[in-house]
Structure formats: structure tokens, C-alpha cells
Amino acid sequence: MMESIEKTAFLRSLNYLRVSHGYALRYNWIYPLFLGAATALGILQLVTATSLFDADGFVRSFTPVLSILAPFYIAALAAVATFSGNQSVDKPFSMSQPVLLKVIGDGGDWENIDVTPRHFLSLLFGYCTSLSIFLLLISIFAPFIAKLAETVSCDWAWLLLSTVFVIFAVLLSQLILGTLLGVYFLADRIHRA
């Protein structure tokens, strides 16, 4: 899996999830999983899974916001990549644990590289861009997803749609928390030497 991500240009934005640090598991998976699953399960107690995917349903209501977010993340990525402020953005993080990314080196072997704040923010906003596009596609095609679930398995459509909604909510939570993490780094952390 890691090798296919590393060798496929379209999957390289997923490299953000491969950054290793003591906080990575919490911020990338535990907090979004808890927040997204709790929210989704709460919403599923109030409405049916099928109604969430209707043309005027909850999932479809995210289309305008998500269509704005993708260009925003691309602009943020361009700004971070060309930022010429404090020189500490191009030095490895000065933290108790190193922030590392495992990549395929020139010789074809796996090696760990130290991630700089600029590289971290580029990976983060690249991932947020891809994630927002993926969520946008789910929100646009929500009515078709509902129809497909009912066609494939009428008896289990509610379970399929509930599962898709929980995944949507977890990924949306990951997007929100990733955005807040990026804002924290741009607003505060990047200015500290």
C-alpha cells in the first residue's frame, strides 16, 4: 500500500497520513473518528439514512461549502509553497520527537526524511484538497448513492447508507480538524523560532 501511494502521482496527497509523530495518530484518526462517529450516530437517531442522501438532504447540503474549500486549500498550498518569511520553516521541527516521513530514496530503498514545517503544511493542505474533492463528489452524487444502495440491496440499503454517512462524517471531521491544525501552524507555530 505504501509503495503504491509513493509511486502513484494521484495518491501522493495521501502522504500526509504517513507523517509519523507522537501526535499524528490522535489528530489524524482518533479525534476525527470519535467526533465524526458520534455526530453521525446522533444524526442517524433523528432521521433515516435514506433521507440524508436525498436531493435536499443533509449530505447534499455540504456541496456549496465543499466546492469553495477545494480552491481555498489549493491557494493555501500555493501560499505555503512560496512563503519566504521566517527561515525556520525550512528547518526540521525542533520537537522532542522527530517528525518523519518514510519515502523511497534515490537507491529505491525506504528512508525516513525529517519533515520541515513548510513540507508538513504542504502535505496537510494537499491532503485537505484531495479530501475536500472526494467529499464534494460524495455530496454531489448523494441521491445517486441512495438509489444505488436501494437497487443493489433493498433490504440492507439503510445499513449501506448509514455506513457511507458515518464514513462521510468521519472524513468531514478529519477535514475540519486538519484545517484547524493548519490554521494553528500558520497563525502561531510557524512564527516561533
Rank of each mutant, 00 (worst) to 15 (best):
S61C: 01
H119P: 00
C128D: 13
M1I: 14
I104D: 04
I133G: 06
A49E: 11
L17N: 11
V103N: 05
P32C: 12
Y127N: 12
S67A: 14
P64C: 05
H21T: 03
V170P: 08
L181K: 10
W158E: 11
L177E: 07
L100P: 00
P92N: 02
H191W: 12
A79C: 04
I145C: 10
V59M: 00
F185S: 11
K102M: 12
V89M: 15
K91D: 02
L77T: 08
V164T: 09
L101N: 00
S4V: 12
A157H: 09
P117K: 02
F53Y: 15
I43R: 07
N28G: 10
D56Q: 10
V80K: 05
T116R: 07
E3F: 03
A70M: 14
W29L: 15
I43F: 06
E150P: 02
D106S: 15
L52D: 02
P32S: 11
F10M: 10
G36Y: 04
T8D: 15
I74G: 10
S51M: 01
P71T: 05
T39W: 10
L171T: 04
W29V: 07
F141P: 06
A76M: 15
L66Q: 02
K7I: 05
V115P: 00
W158D: 13
R192N: 06
F83C: 09
A78Y: 08
P32L: 10
L69Q: 00
L135V: 01
S162A: 12
